[in-house]
């Protein structure tokens, strides 16, 4: 019998005995809470409240971003977006950037007029490491948590959104989702059964509290996260 069969056999043997349902402390009565039977989308009723209108949701996203130290900008025109990007480039003195092809990233790269390390196909990781910023698109923004949902398909692979010291996300208003259940629903409807090999919910810039529980930004990933939403 191989290892797989041996482990599965032990599991099946163990499961011939039934375990009590959770919530009944010490097996005794009195503490049992009514079953809540988790079903599709049911987490929504217990998770933090999210408003129904776009305005409420964007306000929540903005508030969450502020707490997470994400720089969030809601922009009205492509011109505003271009202007802000140029400002960022000049203030931080970007010399080169990493990016991937996309309907938002393409014009952004042209505006910036800097050398670009493209991660659409194979690329040199040493080149990407030298970039001052990584410009990506995303799958969704999540109001409830202030998160950005990226996948290896929507955001130029696995490394572009984590290796450069500044991650700049270009998003559209329609991409704003209310909550986490909606985000996982989107992953399923958009990609199933051919899922990308990587997906991530990015919630603020990289951080650590490992030294005396004091918050430091930019532990290993980006020190800055900027979200520009058209």
């Amino acid at each position: 019998m191989n290892e797989r069969e041996a482990i599965l056999a032990r599991i099946r043997e163990a499961l011939t005995l039934t375990a009590g349902k959770p919530g009944a402390h010490g097996g005794g009565p009195g503490h049992h809470e009514p079953a809540v039977s988790p079903g599709p989308g049911s987490a929504r009723q217990w998770l933090p409240v999210v408003g129904d209108s776009f305005e409420e949701r964007i306000a929540l996203f903005r508030a969450n971003s502020a707490e997470l130290k994400t720089d969030f900008y809601l922009l009205n025109t492509r011109e505003e977006l271009a202007k802000l990007l140029v400002e960022l480039r000049d203030i931080e003195g970007w010399q080169r950037i990493g990016s991937h092809s996309g309907s938002l990233t393409q014009p952004a790269c042209e505006t910036l007029a800097l050398p670009v390390c493209r991660t659409d196909g194979s690329y040199d990781v040493h080149e990407l490491e030298k970039c001052d910023a990584g410009l990506t698109e995303c799958d969704a923004l999540i109001a409830q948590t202030g998160s950005v949902l990226v996948t290896s398909r929507s955001a130029g692979g696995r490394a572009l959104s984590v290796l450069p010291p500044h991650h700049v996300v270009l998003a559209r208003r329609e991409q704003l989702l209310p909550d986490l259940p909606a985000a996982f629903e989107l992953v399923k409807t958009k990609y199933s059964p051919n899922y990308p090999s990587f997906a991530s919910l990015i919630t603020g810039p990289s951080r650590t509290g490992d030294i005396e529980r004091i918050l430091v930004l930019g532990a290993h990933g980006p020190k800055k996260l900027t979200i520009l939403c058209l």
Binding site: S152, G157, P196, F198, A199, I202, S206
Partner: peptide, 17 residues
């Protein structure tokens, strides 16, 4: 900060991994 899902090695059409 990061909640990431991994479902395999680099897939056809992907740039890294």
């Amino acid at each position: 900060c990061y909640n990431s899902l991994y479902g395999g090695p680099r897939q056809p059409g992907e740039s890294d991994g």
